[in-house]
Computed example of a mutant assay.
Amino acid sequence: MPQTPSVYEIHDDRFRHLIVPSSELEELYSGCRWAEGPVWFADLNCLVWSDIPNERMLRWADDTVSVFRSPSNFTNGNTRDRQGRLVSCEHGSRRVTRTEIDGSITVLASSFEGKRLNSPNDVVVRSDGSVWFTDPTYGIMSDYEGYRAEPEQATRNVYRLDPATGQLDAVVTDFGQPNGLAFSPDESILYVADSSSSHDVNAPRHIRAFDIIDGRSLGNGRVFCNIDNGLPDGFRIDVHGNIWTSAGDGVHCFGPEGKLLGKILVPQTVANLTFGGPRKNRLFITASRSLYAVYTATNGNSLA
């Protein structure tokens, strides 16, 4: 019997301790136009993710997929806050919203300095309740993932929303197209992807790192890693500080110092991923049309 090719590429021996070689990549669902924004609900033992062009959000639980929300305002990235509420980036409405426990929607941010946001893309919540999100122009570039419009913001920023005052601050303003973002396990570093090579072959395809100063601002910006196939979109961090990022040929894993440790090869272009399952050792991957999953030998960071 011919041997099934491995989905793993080992670039550093450390990667061998992060994977389960016998764990196969499973396709859990297919039928999306562009799958994005996976978020795990441990209390409900389910995954919710976005299918942006179809303007819907889907729910996976017990190997069954159902519609979670439709229409979705072309929702892209999702996360949960410390109270378990869903926080989402909506391309269509160009805002960041929070779904309350009773199902009502609260608008967290829709403008900056009196002008509409571009199209919020991805979002994370720090332990102090502050909401950090990216605002590239993907949702207003065409009518495919939102509504075509001219940007009102002069730059494509990373923002911090203060949980107490509602004040919105642009903490980084020099990105081409800021995309996925995540905190280090101790919340001392914020990592942000620049995916501007999606429309400019000469643009960066890297993840940058920033030191968090007093929980409010960023400093010491530097390139953390470069992607050698495709570009970085969404990513997550495990309990050891390794970054697991989307790429053109699958999921790339980088050590805390920025060295490529290995890859999980995926048949479709990966957009985003998250750790889930009862022990957060299952990697759920949104890739083009499908939702995939694979078990790992590490666990997701609770703050990712």
Rank of each mutant, 00 (worst) to 15 (best):
M57K: 10
V171P: 11
N242W: 03
V7G: 11
S288G: 08
H199G: 15
N157S: 12
Y147F: 15
L260Q: 10
L181W: 02
V123H: 09
D238V: 00
L18C: 07
L190C: 05
E152D: 08
T99A: 14
I243G: 09
L283F: 10
V266L: 07
E24F: 01
G221P: 03
N73K: 11
N226L: 12
D238A: 03
G258K: 03
L265V: 15
G258M: 02
V125Y: 11
R82C: 11
G219Q: 09
R148W: 10
M141I: 14
M1T: 14
L58Q: 07
T274S: 08
R216K: 14
E152H: 05
L260I: 04
F254A: 02
R208T: 09
S22V: 13
T286N: 04
H17P: 02
R216W: 04
F74L: 00
V7W: 01
Y292F: 15
R289M: 07
N76Y: 03
A170H: 02
S246V: 00
L273R: 00
I19N: 02
G77C: 05
F224V: 00
D43P: 14
L18M: 12
D122V: 12
I10K: 07
L261P: 00
P278A: 15
A271P: 01
S130L: 07
A164N: 13
D102K: 06
Y144Q: 13
R236V: 13
L273S: 04
S188A: 14
N229S: 10
E55T: 03
H199W: 13
T137R: 13
V125W: 09
L161C: 05
E36K: 10
S198E: 14
I285M: 00
D174K: 04
L231M: 13
S217T: 13
S66D: 05
N78A: 04
L190F: 06
L25A: 06
T134G: 02
I227D: 08
D228R: 12
G31L: 00
L47K: 01
G114T: 08
S88Q: 13
L117P: 04
A170R: 06
V172E: 14
V131F: 09
H206R: 05
A109E: 05
P267G: 00
Q83T: 05
F175R: 00
D249M: 05
N121A: 06
S110G: 09
S30H: 09
Y147Q: 07
V107T: 12
G146N: 06
S290C: 01
L28H: 08
I213E: 05
V96Y: 02
L18P: 10
D43T: 11
F284D: 02
H11K: 07
S217H: 08
S50A: 15
F41G: 09
V294Y: 01
S111P: 03
Y29F: 15
K259Q: 10
I207P: 08
L303S: 14
A297L: 06
V192M: 09
T155R: 14
R126A: 15
R16F: 07
